[in-house]
Design a protein around this nucleic acid. Structure first.
Length: 471
RNA sequence: GGUCCCUUCGUCUAUCGGUUAGGACACUAGAUUUUCAAUCUAGGAAGAGGGGUUCGACUCCCCUAGGGACUACCA
Protein backbone atom coordinates (compact mmCIF):
# COMPACT_ATOMS: atom_id res chain seq x y z
CA UNK A 1 0.00 0.00 0.00
CA UNK A 2 1.30 3.40 -0.90
CA UNK A 3 1.45 6.11 1.70
CA UNK A 4 1.34 8.72 -1.00
CA UNK A 5 -1.73 10.94 -0.55
CA UNK A 6 -4.35 10.49 -3.18
CA UNK A 7 -4.26 14.08 -4.33
CA UNK A 8 -1.19 16.25 -4.87
CA UNK A 9 -1.54 19.75 -6.30
CA UNK A 10 1.11 22.34 -6.93
CA UNK A 11 1.49 26.00 -7.62
CA UNK A 12 4.30 26.64 -10.07
CA UNK A 13 5.10 30.32 -10.49
CA UNK A 14 7.94 31.57 -12.64
CA UNK A 15 9.99 34.10 -10.70
CA UNK A 16 10.03 36.88 -13.23
CA UNK A 17 8.07 39.41 -11.17
CA UNK A 18 5.69 39.87 -8.27
CA UNK A 19 2.89 37.47 -7.41
CA UNK A 20 0.06 38.41 -9.72
CA UNK A 21 -3.47 38.38 -8.37
CA UNK A 22 -4.41 35.81 -11.00
CA UNK A 23 -1.52 33.64 -9.88
CA UNK A 24 -2.65 34.10 -6.30
CA UNK A 25 -6.06 32.76 -7.19
CA UNK A 26 -4.49 29.81 -8.99
CA UNK A 27 -2.48 29.10 -5.86
CA UNK A 28 -5.61 29.43 -3.74
CA UNK A 29 -7.55 26.95 -5.88
CA UNK A 30 -4.68 24.47 -5.70
CA UNK A 31 -4.51 24.93 -1.96
CA UNK A 32 -8.26 24.61 -1.48
CA UNK A 33 -8.43 21.49 -3.57
CA UNK A 34 -5.58 19.84 -1.72
CA UNK A 35 -7.16 20.72 1.62
CA UNK A 36 -10.57 19.58 0.45
CA UNK A 37 -9.29 16.17 -0.58
CA UNK A 38 -6.92 15.76 2.30
CA UNK A 39 -4.03 15.81 -0.13
CA UNK A 40 -0.90 17.86 -0.42
CA UNK A 41 -0.23 21.32 -1.77
CA UNK A 42 3.26 21.84 -3.18
CA UNK A 43 5.16 24.80 -4.57
CA UNK A 44 7.64 24.65 -7.39
CA UNK A 45 9.54 27.65 -8.64
CA UNK A 46 9.87 27.47 -12.41
CA UNK A 47 13.19 29.15 -12.85
CA UNK A 48 14.49 27.38 -15.94
CA UNK A 49 14.67 30.71 -17.73
CA UNK A 50 17.92 31.93 -16.22
CA UNK A 51 17.72 35.25 -18.04
CA UNK A 52 14.46 36.37 -16.54
CA UNK A 53 14.37 34.68 -13.15
CA UNK A 54 15.48 36.79 -10.20
CA UNK A 55 15.93 36.13 -6.47
CA UNK A 56 13.95 39.28 -5.75
CA UNK A 57 10.99 37.82 -7.61
CA UNK A 58 11.31 34.58 -5.69
CA UNK A 59 11.14 36.56 -2.45
CA UNK A 60 8.20 38.61 -3.65
CA UNK A 61 6.25 35.49 -4.58
CA UNK A 62 6.85 33.77 -1.27
CA UNK A 63 6.01 36.95 0.56
CA UNK A 64 2.73 37.16 -1.32
CA UNK A 65 1.83 33.52 -0.65
CA UNK A 66 2.76 33.94 2.96
CA UNK A 67 0.55 36.96 3.35
CA UNK A 68 -2.32 35.08 1.77
CA UNK A 69 -1.74 32.25 4.19
CA UNK A 70 -1.06 29.60 1.57
CA UNK A 71 1.64 27.37 2.92
CA UNK A 72 3.26 24.57 1.03
CA UNK A 73 3.16 21.12 2.57
CA UNK A 74 6.79 20.53 1.63
CA UNK A 75 9.94 22.49 0.95
CA UNK A 76 9.49 24.39 -2.31
CA UNK A 77 11.30 22.86 -5.25
CA UNK A 78 13.43 24.93 -7.60
CA UNK A 79 13.09 23.58 -11.09
CA UNK A 80 16.51 24.56 -12.34
CA UNK A 81 18.12 22.32 -9.74
CA UNK A 82 16.51 19.34 -11.44
CA UNK A 83 18.24 20.07 -14.74
CA UNK A 84 20.28 16.86 -14.70
CA UNK A 85 17.16 14.82 -14.18
CA UNK A 86 15.52 16.67 -17.08
CA UNK A 87 18.45 15.98 -19.34
CA UNK A 88 18.31 12.29 -18.44
CA UNK A 89 14.65 12.23 -19.42
CA UNK A 90 15.53 13.77 -22.76
CA UNK A 91 18.21 11.15 -23.30
CA UNK A 92 15.58 8.52 -22.64
CA UNK A 93 13.34 10.07 -25.26
CA UNK A 94 16.25 10.21 -27.68
CA UNK A 95 17.01 6.56 -27.08
CA UNK A 96 13.41 5.63 -27.67
CA UNK A 97 13.33 7.58 -30.90
CA UNK A 98 10.74 9.95 -29.45
CA UNK A 99 13.02 12.96 -29.76
CA UNK A 100 15.61 14.19 -32.24
CA UNK A 101 18.43 16.62 -32.59
CA UNK A 102 17.71 19.64 -34.74
CA UNK A 103 20.36 21.82 -36.30
CA UNK A 104 18.08 24.46 -37.78
CA UNK A 105 19.49 27.94 -37.45
CA UNK A 106 17.43 30.85 -36.18
CA UNK A 107 17.24 32.13 -39.75
CA UNK A 108 16.04 28.82 -41.09
CA UNK A 109 13.47 28.61 -38.35
CA UNK A 110 12.20 32.08 -39.16
CA UNK A 111 11.68 31.10 -42.76
CA UNK A 112 9.94 27.86 -41.85
CA UNK A 113 7.76 29.70 -39.35
CA UNK A 114 6.46 32.23 -41.84
CA UNK A 115 5.95 29.48 -44.39
CA UNK A 116 4.06 27.28 -41.96
CA UNK A 117 1.94 30.18 -40.85
CA UNK A 118 1.02 31.07 -44.40
CA UNK A 119 0.06 27.48 -45.06
CA UNK A 120 -1.82 27.29 -41.78
CA UNK A 121 0.10 24.36 -40.36
CA UNK A 122 2.47 23.61 -37.51
CA UNK A 123 6.15 24.11 -38.15
CA UNK A 124 8.31 21.09 -38.88
CA UNK A 125 12.02 20.64 -38.68
CA UNK A 126 13.86 19.12 -41.63
CA UNK A 127 15.92 17.13 -39.10
CA UNK A 128 12.93 15.21 -37.87
CA UNK A 129 13.71 12.29 -40.12
CA UNK A 130 17.27 13.01 -41.15
CA UNK A 131 20.33 11.32 -39.80
CA UNK A 132 22.71 13.41 -37.76
CA UNK A 133 25.62 14.68 -39.80
CA UNK A 134 29.03 14.49 -38.26
CA UNK A 135 29.54 17.99 -36.92
CA UNK A 136 29.97 19.94 -33.72
CA UNK A 137 27.54 22.71 -34.45
CA UNK A 138 25.03 23.57 -31.74
CA UNK A 139 21.69 21.81 -31.84
CA UNK A 140 18.48 21.65 -29.89
CA UNK A 141 16.56 18.51 -29.01
CA UNK A 142 12.98 18.44 -30.17
CA UNK A 143 10.13 16.16 -29.25
CA UNK A 144 9.07 13.88 -32.08
CA UNK A 145 5.33 14.16 -31.98
CA UNK A 146 2.96 11.85 -33.82
CA UNK A 147 1.69 13.15 -37.17
CA UNK A 148 -1.61 11.36 -36.98
CA UNK A 149 -4.35 10.77 -34.50
CA UNK A 150 -5.66 13.04 -31.84
CA UNK A 151 -4.83 13.87 -28.27
CA UNK A 152 -7.61 14.51 -25.82
CA UNK A 153 -7.07 16.60 -22.73
CA UNK A 154 -9.67 15.60 -20.17
CA UNK A 155 -9.95 18.96 -18.50
CA UNK A 156 -11.84 19.18 -15.21
CA UNK A 157 -12.96 22.72 -15.98
CA UNK A 158 -13.32 22.76 -19.75
CA UNK A 159 -14.37 19.19 -20.34
CA UNK A 160 -12.66 17.07 -22.99
CA UNK A 161 -10.60 19.16 -25.40
CA UNK A 162 -9.46 17.47 -28.60
CA UNK A 163 -6.35 18.31 -30.56
CA UNK A 164 -5.25 16.89 -33.89
CA UNK A 165 -1.69 15.69 -33.41
CA UNK A 166 -0.61 17.07 -36.74
CA UNK A 167 -1.44 20.55 -35.45
CA UNK A 168 1.02 20.21 -32.61
CA UNK A 169 4.57 21.24 -33.43
CA UNK A 170 7.69 19.48 -32.26
CA UNK A 171 8.59 21.57 -29.30
CA UNK A 172 12.10 22.11 -28.06
CA UNK A 173 13.01 19.96 -25.07
CA UNK A 174 16.63 20.99 -24.66
CA UNK A 175 18.04 24.34 -25.73
CA UNK A 176 21.27 24.55 -27.67
CA UNK A 177 23.09 25.33 -24.43
CA UNK A 178 21.79 22.08 -22.99
CA UNK A 179 19.26 23.73 -20.69
CA UNK A 180 15.85 22.06 -20.42
CA UNK A 181 12.76 24.00 -21.43
CA UNK A 182 9.58 24.50 -19.51
CA UNK A 183 7.43 22.03 -21.40
CA UNK A 184 9.82 19.21 -20.66
CA UNK A 185 10.56 20.26 -17.11
CA UNK A 186 6.92 20.54 -16.03
CA UNK A 187 6.18 17.05 -17.18
CA UNK A 188 9.19 15.49 -15.49
CA UNK A 189 8.81 17.48 -12.28
CA UNK A 190 5.07 17.00 -11.96
CA UNK A 191 5.65 13.30 -12.39
CA UNK A 192 8.53 13.16 -9.94
CA UNK A 193 6.62 15.17 -7.35
CA UNK A 194 3.66 12.85 -7.67
CA UNK A 195 1.35 15.63 -8.81
CA UNK A 196 -2.08 14.21 -9.55
CA UNK A 197 -3.94 17.40 -10.38
CA UNK A 198 -2.47 20.17 -12.46
CA UNK A 199 -4.54 23.26 -11.72
CA UNK A 200 -3.19 26.24 -13.61
CA UNK A 201 -4.06 29.18 -15.83
CA UNK A 202 -6.07 28.95 -18.98
CA UNK A 203 -3.07 30.04 -20.98
CA UNK A 204 -1.59 26.56 -20.62
CA UNK A 205 -4.47 24.67 -22.17
CA UNK A 206 -2.80 24.38 -25.56
CA UNK A 207 0.42 23.21 -23.92
CA UNK A 208 -1.49 20.49 -22.09
CA UNK A 209 -1.87 18.56 -25.32
CA UNK A 210 1.83 18.68 -26.10
CA UNK A 211 2.65 17.78 -22.53
CA UNK A 212 0.25 14.85 -22.61
CA UNK A 213 2.23 13.48 -25.54
CA UNK A 214 5.45 13.80 -23.56
CA UNK A 215 3.92 12.06 -20.55
CA UNK A 216 2.93 9.19 -22.78
CA UNK A 217 6.30 8.98 -24.51
CA UNK A 218 7.95 8.80 -21.09
CA UNK A 219 5.44 6.19 -19.87
CA UNK A 220 4.27 8.53 -17.13
CA UNK A 221 0.71 8.58 -15.86
CA UNK A 222 -1.04 11.68 -17.20
CA UNK A 223 -2.34 13.84 -14.34
CA UNK A 224 -5.79 15.38 -14.26
CA UNK A 225 -5.79 18.87 -15.72
CA UNK A 226 -7.88 21.84 -14.67
CA UNK A 227 -7.33 25.03 -16.64
CA UNK A 228 -8.88 27.95 -14.89
CA UNK A 229 -9.68 31.22 -16.63
CA UNK A 230 -7.57 34.30 -16.12
CA UNK A 231 -8.77 37.29 -14.10
CA UNK A 232 -9.55 40.36 -16.16
CA UNK A 233 -9.73 44.01 -15.23
CA UNK A 234 -13.07 45.70 -14.53
CA UNK A 235 -13.32 46.59 -18.23
CA UNK A 236 -12.87 43.02 -19.36
CA UNK A 237 -9.38 43.55 -20.70
CA UNK A 238 -6.39 41.65 -19.46
CA UNK A 239 -5.48 42.88 -15.99
CA UNK A 240 -2.82 45.56 -16.20
CA UNK A 241 -1.32 48.44 -14.30
CA UNK A 242 -4.03 50.86 -15.23
CA UNK A 243 -6.58 48.75 -13.35
CA UNK A 244 -5.08 49.83 -10.06
CA UNK A 245 -3.24 46.77 -8.88
CA UNK A 246 -1.95 43.43 -10.00
CA UNK A 247 0.44 42.31 -7.31
CA UNK A 248 -0.93 40.85 -4.10
CA UNK A 249 1.48 43.10 -2.22
CA UNK A 250 -0.38 46.08 -3.61
CA UNK A 251 -3.67 44.73 -2.27
CA UNK A 252 -2.04 44.37 1.12
CA UNK A 253 -0.81 47.95 0.96
CA UNK A 254 -4.24 49.14 -0.06
CA UNK A 255 -5.62 47.82 3.18
CA UNK A 256 -7.24 44.55 2.23
CA UNK A 257 -7.17 41.72 4.75
CA UNK A 258 -5.80 38.34 3.61
CA UNK A 259 -8.90 36.49 4.77
CA UNK A 260 -11.04 38.90 2.74
CA UNK A 261 -8.80 38.35 -0.25
CA UNK A 262 -9.17 34.58 0.06
CA UNK A 263 -12.93 34.85 0.26
CA UNK A 264 -13.18 37.24 -2.65
CA UNK A 265 -10.75 35.38 -4.87
CA UNK A 266 -12.46 32.07 -4.18
CA UNK A 267 -15.79 33.61 -5.12
CA UNK A 268 -14.34 34.87 -8.36
CA UNK A 269 -14.98 32.07 -10.79
CA UNK A 270 -16.23 29.63 -8.23
CA UNK A 271 -19.37 29.50 -6.20
CA UNK A 272 -21.33 27.37 -3.81
CA UNK A 273 -24.98 28.20 -4.33
CA UNK A 274 -25.84 31.59 -2.92
CA UNK A 275 -23.01 31.68 -0.42
CA UNK A 276 -21.04 34.91 -0.64
CA UNK A 277 -19.21 35.17 2.66
CA UNK A 278 -17.66 32.02 3.97
CA UNK A 279 -14.86 30.88 6.23
CA UNK A 280 -11.76 29.04 5.11
CA UNK A 281 -13.19 25.88 6.65
CA UNK A 282 -16.37 26.24 4.62
CA UNK A 283 -14.46 26.97 1.44
CA UNK A 284 -12.34 23.89 2.01
CA UNK A 285 -15.29 21.63 2.60
CA UNK A 286 -17.22 22.99 -0.40
CA UNK A 287 -14.51 23.51 -2.97
CA UNK A 288 -14.12 21.37 -6.04
CA UNK A 289 -12.15 22.33 -9.15
CA UNK A 290 -14.89 20.87 -11.28
CA UNK A 291 -17.15 23.68 -10.05
CA UNK A 292 -14.85 26.44 -11.22
CA UNK A 293 -16.44 28.52 -13.96
CA UNK A 294 -15.01 28.36 -17.43
CA UNK A 295 -15.36 32.03 -18.33
CA UNK A 296 -12.87 34.69 -17.25
CA UNK A 297 -14.04 36.85 -14.36
CA UNK A 298 -13.52 40.56 -13.89
CA UNK A 299 -12.03 42.10 -10.82
CA UNK A 300 -14.74 44.09 -9.03
CA UNK A 301 -13.34 46.59 -6.55
CA UNK A 302 -16.73 47.42 -5.09
CA UNK A 303 -17.39 43.84 -4.14
CA UNK A 304 -13.89 43.38 -2.81
CA UNK A 305 -14.49 46.43 -0.62
CA UNK A 306 -17.75 45.01 0.60
CA UNK A 307 -16.18 41.71 1.58
CA UNK A 308 -13.22 43.45 3.14
CA UNK A 309 -15.49 45.64 5.26
CA UNK A 310 -17.16 42.50 6.51
CA UNK A 311 -13.85 41.05 7.64
CA UNK A 312 -12.77 44.34 9.19
CA UNK A 313 -15.83 44.17 11.44
CA UNK A 314 -14.82 40.69 12.46
CA UNK A 315 -11.18 41.52 13.01
CA UNK A 316 -9.59 41.94 16.39
CA UNK A 317 -9.24 45.59 17.45
CA UNK A 318 -5.63 45.29 18.45
CA UNK A 319 -4.70 43.82 15.09
CA UNK A 320 -6.62 46.60 13.36
CA UNK A 321 -4.91 49.21 15.51
CA UNK A 322 -1.53 47.91 14.40
CA UNK A 323 -2.52 47.90 10.74
CA UNK A 324 -4.13 51.31 11.03
CA UNK A 325 -1.10 52.79 12.68
CA UNK A 326 1.04 51.49 9.81
CA UNK A 327 -1.38 53.12 7.42
CA UNK A 328 -1.15 56.38 9.30
CA UNK A 329 2.61 56.26 9.06
CA UNK A 330 2.38 55.72 5.33
CA UNK A 331 -0.06 58.61 5.08
CA UNK A 332 2.21 60.85 7.07
CA UNK A 333 -0.04 61.30 10.09
CA UNK A 334 1.88 62.46 13.17
CA UNK A 335 1.24 59.74 15.74
CA UNK A 336 1.29 60.75 19.42
CA UNK A 337 3.21 58.61 21.87
CA UNK A 338 0.04 56.90 23.02
CA UNK A 339 -1.18 56.58 19.42
CA UNK A 340 -1.74 52.85 19.54
CA UNK A 341 -3.85 53.10 22.68
CA UNK A 342 -5.88 55.93 21.18
CA UNK A 343 -6.42 53.88 18.04
CA UNK A 344 -7.54 50.87 19.97
CA UNK A 345 -10.09 52.99 21.79
CA UNK A 346 -11.37 54.60 18.62
CA UNK A 347 -11.45 51.61 16.28
CA UNK A 348 -14.45 49.78 17.77
CA UNK A 349 -16.41 52.98 17.26
CA UNK A 350 -15.66 53.35 13.58
CA UNK A 351 -14.80 49.94 12.18
CA UNK A 352 -18.31 49.36 10.86
CA UNK A 353 -17.92 52.26 8.49
CA UNK A 354 -14.60 51.24 6.98
CA UNK A 355 -14.04 49.12 3.91
CA UNK A 356 -10.25 49.26 4.00
CA UNK A 357 -7.48 50.03 6.45
CA UNK A 358 -6.74 53.48 4.97
CA UNK A 359 -10.40 54.30 5.50
CA UNK A 360 -10.00 53.21 9.08
CA UNK A 361 -7.02 55.54 9.27
CA UNK A 362 -9.13 58.40 8.04
CA UNK A 363 -11.92 57.60 10.49
CA UNK A 364 -9.56 57.52 13.45
CA UNK A 365 -7.87 60.81 12.66
CA UNK A 366 -10.04 62.62 15.20
CA UNK A 367 -8.54 60.62 18.04
CA UNK A 368 -4.94 61.27 17.15
CA UNK A 369 -4.84 65.02 16.80
CA UNK A 370 -2.73 66.99 19.20
CA UNK A 371 -3.90 70.12 21.03
CA UNK A 372 -4.48 72.75 20.13
CA UNK A 373 -6.43 71.50 17.12
CA UNK A 374 -6.52 73.77 14.14
CA UNK A 375 -10.20 74.70 13.83
CA UNK A 376 -11.62 74.08 10.38
CA UNK A 377 -13.63 76.65 8.48
CA UNK A 378 -16.92 74.87 8.78
CA UNK A 379 -16.72 74.79 12.55
CA UNK A 380 -15.67 78.42 12.65
CA UNK A 381 -18.75 79.27 10.66
CA UNK A 382 -20.91 77.39 13.13
CA UNK A 383 -19.65 79.41 16.05
CA UNK A 384 -21.96 82.38 16.06
CA UNK A 385 -22.06 84.35 19.30
CA UNK A 386 -25.14 82.45 20.36
CA UNK A 387 -23.61 79.05 19.70
CA UNK A 388 -20.31 80.01 21.22
CA UNK A 389 -21.98 81.02 24.44
CA UNK A 390 -24.06 77.86 24.47
CA UNK A 391 -20.92 75.82 23.89
CA UNK A 392 -19.25 77.56 26.77
CA UNK A 393 -22.16 76.61 28.99
CA UNK A 394 -21.91 73.06 27.68
CA UNK A 395 -18.23 72.92 28.45
CA UNK A 396 -18.85 74.00 32.00
CA UNK A 397 -21.64 71.46 32.24
CA UNK A 398 -19.40 68.67 30.98
CA UNK A 399 -16.64 69.68 33.32
CA UNK A 400 -18.97 68.83 36.18
CA UNK A 401 -19.72 65.39 34.84
CA UNK A 402 -19.20 62.71 37.45
CA UNK A 403 -19.05 59.90 34.94
CA UNK A 404 -17.37 59.98 31.57
CA UNK A 405 -19.03 56.82 30.36
CA UNK A 406 -20.68 57.07 26.94
CA UNK A 407 -24.19 56.34 28.25
CA UNK A 408 -23.91 59.02 30.92
CA UNK A 409 -22.46 61.51 28.50
CA UNK A 410 -25.29 60.78 26.13
CA UNK A 411 -27.84 61.49 28.83
CA UNK A 412 -25.97 64.60 29.86
CA UNK A 413 -26.01 65.97 26.31
CA UNK A 414 -29.73 65.36 26.06
CA UNK A 415 -30.40 67.01 29.38
CA UNK A 416 -28.34 69.95 28.33
CA UNK A 417 -30.28 70.30 25.08
CA UNK A 418 -33.54 70.18 27.01
CA UNK A 419 -32.25 72.68 29.49
CA UNK A 420 -31.32 75.01 26.64
CA UNK A 421 -34.66 74.41 25.00
CA UNK A 422 -33.06 73.42 21.68
CA UNK A 423 -32.44 70.29 19.68
CA UNK A 424 -29.10 68.57 19.42
CA UNK A 425 -28.79 70.00 15.93
CA UNK A 426 -28.27 73.43 17.48
CA UNK A 427 -24.91 72.61 18.98
CA UNK A 428 -24.06 69.03 17.99
CA UNK A 429 -22.22 69.92 14.81
CA UNK A 430 -20.18 72.58 16.59
CA UNK A 431 -19.28 70.18 19.39
CA UNK A 432 -18.25 67.59 16.85
CA UNK A 433 -16.21 70.07 14.89
CA UNK A 434 -14.34 71.25 17.95
CA UNK A 435 -13.71 67.74 19.22
CA UNK A 436 -12.55 66.34 15.91
CA UNK A 437 -10.90 69.33 14.32
CA UNK A 438 -13.08 68.86 11.27
CA UNK A 439 -12.44 65.18 10.73
CA UNK A 440 -15.33 62.79 10.71
CA UNK A 441 -16.04 61.26 14.10
CA UNK A 442 -18.47 58.80 15.67
CA UNK A 443 -21.55 59.88 17.59
CA UNK A 444 -20.90 62.63 20.10
CA UNK A 445 -21.01 60.73 23.38
CA UNK A 446 -18.69 58.06 21.96
CA UNK A 447 -16.33 60.67 20.62
CA UNK A 448 -16.21 62.42 23.96
CA UNK A 449 -15.52 59.14 25.68
CA UNK A 450 -12.95 57.93 23.16
CA UNK A 451 -11.00 61.17 23.32
CA UNK A 452 -11.06 61.13 27.10
CA UNK A 453 -12.13 63.66 29.68
CA UNK A 454 -9.04 65.81 29.89
CA UNK A 455 -8.41 65.85 26.17
CA UNK A 456 -12.04 66.61 25.35
CA UNK A 457 -12.33 69.45 27.84
CA UNK A 458 -8.97 70.74 26.70
CA UNK A 459 -10.06 70.79 23.08
CA UNK A 460 -13.23 72.65 24.04
CA UNK A 461 -11.32 75.14 26.09
CA UNK A 462 -8.83 75.76 23.31
CA UNK A 463 -11.61 76.55 20.90
CA UNK A 464 -13.96 78.51 23.12
CA UNK A 465 -12.12 80.23 25.90
CA UNK A 466 -8.72 80.95 24.49
CA UNK A 467 -9.11 84.73 24.39
CA UNK A 468 -11.74 85.21 27.04
CA UNK A 469 -11.22 83.23 30.16
CA UNK A 470 -9.84 80.01 31.47
CA UNK A 471 -11.79 77.27 33.06
C1' G B 1 -3.59 33.07 -40.72
C1' G B 2 -4.01 28.23 -37.88
C1' U B 3 -5.42 25.53 -33.34
C1' C B 4 -8.01 25.85 -28.85
C1' C B 5 -11.11 28.22 -25.03
C1' C B 6 -15.08 31.56 -23.55
C1' U B 7 -20.38 34.21 -23.88
C1' U B 8 -27.07 34.52 -17.83
C1' C B 9 -28.76 41.53 -14.73
C1' G B 10 -23.40 46.99 -15.00
C1' U B 11 -20.15 43.08 -12.09
C1' C B 12 -19.54 38.07 -9.54
C1' U B 13 -22.68 34.08 -9.89
C1' A B 14 -27.24 30.11 -9.15
C1' U B 15 -29.86 27.10 -12.57
C1' C B 16 -27.27 20.74 -14.09
C1' G B 17 -34.72 20.14 -20.17
C1' G B 18 -40.26 22.27 -17.31
C1' U B 19 -38.46 28.37 -12.17
C1' U B 20 -42.74 34.65 -12.04
C1' A B 21 -34.57 32.89 -14.33
C1' G B 22 -32.65 33.15 -7.67
C1' G B 23 -28.69 35.60 -4.64
C1' A B 24 -24.66 39.11 -3.77
C1' C B 25 -22.08 43.74 -5.01
C1' A B 26 -23.16 48.20 -7.44
C1' C B 27 -27.20 51.52 -8.67
C1' U B 28 -32.07 54.30 -7.70
C1' A B 29 -35.89 55.89 -4.12
C1' G B 30 -37.44 56.21 0.84
C1' A B 31 -36.56 55.74 6.32
C1' U B 32 -32.95 57.23 10.06
C1' U B 33 -29.70 61.53 11.20
C1' U B 34 -25.21 65.38 15.45
C1' U B 35 -20.48 64.93 10.32
C1' C B 36 -18.88 60.69 7.15
C1' A B 37 -20.47 56.21 7.07
C1' A B 38 -23.22 52.24 8.64
C1' U B 39 -28.15 50.26 9.09
C1' C B 40 -33.41 49.23 7.46
C1' U B 41 -37.26 49.07 3.50
C1' A B 42 -38.59 49.19 -1.56
C1' G B 43 -37.27 49.16 -6.79
C1' G B 44 -35.16 48.73 -11.73
C1' A B 45 -31.80 45.30 -14.09
C1' A B 46 -29.89 39.25 -17.70
C1' G B 47 -29.81 34.07 -20.91
C1' A B 48 -24.87 37.69 -27.75
C1' G B 49 -27.60 36.57 -32.65
C1' G B 50 -29.57 32.73 -35.91
C1' G B 51 -30.80 27.77 -36.89
C1' G B 52 -31.94 22.94 -35.20
C1' U B 53 -33.15 18.45 -31.43
C1' U B 54 -37.47 18.08 -28.12
C1' C B 55 -44.23 18.04 -25.99
C1' G B 56 -40.85 21.73 -23.76
C1' A B 57 -34.80 24.87 -24.01
C1' C B 58 -30.51 29.49 -20.41
C1' U B 59 -29.56 24.28 -20.16
C1' C B 60 -28.04 19.52 -25.79
C1' C B 61 -26.08 20.16 -31.26
C1' C B 62 -24.57 23.45 -35.47
C1' C B 63 -23.47 28.25 -37.58
C1' U B 64 -22.40 33.50 -37.01
C1' A B 65 -20.61 37.52 -34.12
C1' G B 66 -17.68 39.27 -30.25
C1' G B 67 -13.82 38.40 -26.56
C1' G B 68 -9.35 35.58 -25.07
C1' A B 69 -5.10 32.07 -25.09
C1' C B 70 -1.43 29.56 -27.75
C1' U B 71 1.26 29.48 -32.22
C1' A B 72 9.45 31.06 -28.63
C1' C B 73 15.97 27.71 -27.84
C1' C B 74 9.35 32.38 -22.07
C1' A B 75 6.82 30.13 -18.49
Amino acid sequence: MSDRPSVVTRFAPSPTGYLHIGGARTALFNWLYARHTGGKFLIRVEDTDRERSTPAAVDAIFEGLDWLGLKSDAEPLFQFQQADRHRAAVQQLLDKGRAYRCWMSVEELDIERTKARAEGRAIRSVWRDKDAPANDKPFVVRFKGPLEGETVVEDLVKGPVRFQNKELDDLVLLRSDGAPTYNLAVVVDDHDMGVTHVIRGDDHLNNAARQTLIYQALDFAVPAFAHIPLIHGPDGAKLSKRHGAQAVGEFADMGYLPEAMRNYLARLGWGHGDDEIFSDAQAISWFDVADVGSAPARLDWAKLNHINSHYIRLADDHRLALLTSEAHERLGTALPADGLARLEAAIPLVKEGAATIPELANLTLFALKARPLAPDEKTQGLLTDETRERMQRLTENLAEAGSWAPADLEARLKDFAAQEGVGLGKFGPALRGILSGGSTAPDLASTLAAVGRDEALGRLQDALFKATKTL
